[in-house]
Design a protein around this nucleic acid. Structure first.
Lengths: 232, 232
DNA sequence: CGTAAACCTACCAGATCTAGTAGCTTCCAA
DNA sequence: TTGGAAGCTACTAGATCTGGTAGGTTTACG
């Protein structure tokens, strides 16, 4: 069993992502018969996804890669939409091409799995998947993994985007106006919210669009979100 | 001290939000000298925010409400942008109107606080704030609270939106039109790309906006991206 | 002190989007 | 086979946004 509070404390103290991953891997090694895979997706970034750490057997990883299973894997596609952890046995209406993945996995001894998707407001989705080579997974193990993994996520996110590092290309007003636009407000509504005229809101948004090299506010809002300048 | 795994298991078993809140409140009562407030913000909903549970003294709650502190409270405004838990002592550059809240709080014995913001991809932000009436908060307590609260959040979210409820499926054309809009194309340009008239593009986008419950295409695009229905 | 840069405020004409309406096709179940 | 639901195509009037112009304030610097 893992002492979650101690483990979390240990993870809090690390200074780099590499170190964090090492600590996490070591903590999980206390649980037997467990494969894990940590990855992330950045909806608004050029580089669409990144694998953070995996302890699946090499054969499975290359098998998975060769067959391009990532394109069909329901733990990947589901995680974009699912907002809470789920067991793989909860999957319904899988396509045949998706069932194949699980039947292949069972050849590697995997009997069930658990996935934790975590969504950041800047468009990053963090996905942690756990495959169990045992018939029954105790609630205790599942909950320990969840606690450990959310703690990992919080630390990972802080290391990735230090709270201070944020060069504001946009001026305060520009950011505000764009932010309200992203939330569906018209210029007139934003004007009321900010206590300025509709015309002035239009002026600020126009300047923001110039800085973001965007042709209209839709593109500008999407780009500003990409760059982490505003969150919707 | 709280046994997190047992506590989480206990929370998993509840059948309603009321029950969940009761259990959570009871679990937290093991920690002394602690005030908490749980709330949520729904960026894309009509009803913009809801208080889930609070155990602050009645006097403070009415004081806070009367003075409309929620409009200035940095634990509220910060949580929209911060993606990981933070201690109140980390606040920098507070406005005088915000400092007042903390100095008022200290009259109630509060010495430091801790806030956990959790963001769901559907626009909900869940905020849990904890105010401590003691000078030093142990890392153990903080981490236990974090583990407990994320577990609460997962259960809360599942009870709120059962996994099955999802009919936000855009038709093929709707998805295409919205996607080109997200890339900065006007209706006319999209029409040329798809080989249909500008009018038809407008029609599809209008229907997509209806399905996404959005007032204009900016909000619709942001929302569709957040829901993983399109990618820019 | 003067002045330039970076903001913020405001207005307007022409382009674009929103919301309502309508005909046509496909598909499925009564 | 008939009726209805869902989707695609298209049009129009009124609301909103885009891009140009202009003056005022603050800050930093020679």
């Amino acid at each position: 069993m893992i002492d979650i509070v101690n483990a979390s404390d240990y993870m809090e103290s690390v200074r780099s992502i590499e170190e964090l991953v090492t600590v996490y891997r070591q903590l999980l090694s206390n649980l037997s018969d467990l494969y894990f895979a940590l990855g992330r997706f950045d909806r608004f970034q050029k580089r669409e996804h990144e694998i953070i750490d995996v302890n699946y057997p090499k054969e499975w990883v290359s098998y998975y890669t060769d067959r391009k299973y990532i394109l069909e894997d329901p733990t990947v596609s589901q995680s974009a939409q699912t907002q809470t952890p789920y067991l793989w046995q909860e999957f319904r209406d899988l396509r045949p091409s998706q069932r194949v993945i699980f039947s292949d996995l069972s050849d590697f001894g995997v009997q069930d799995g658990y996935t934790i998707p975590l969504h950041a407001p800047d468009g990053m989705t963090f996905v942690a998947s756990f495959a169990f080579r045992r018939p029954v997974v105790s609630a205790a193990d599942r909950l320990a993994i969840t606690a450990l993994t959310t703690q990992f996520y919080f630390r990972y996110k802080r290391l990735l985007n230090p709270p201070s590092s944020r060069e504001n290309v946009l001026s305060e007003r520009e950011g505000e106006c764009l932010c309200w636009a992203a939330r569906g407000k018209s210029s007139w509504e934003t004007g009321v919210i900010l206590g300025i005229t509709e015309n002035t809101v239009n002026f600020h948004i126009k300047n923001a669009l110039g800085k973001l090299q965007s042709n209209n506010r839709i593109e500008g809002v999407v780009r500003a979100i990409c760059l982490g300048l505003i969150s919707p």
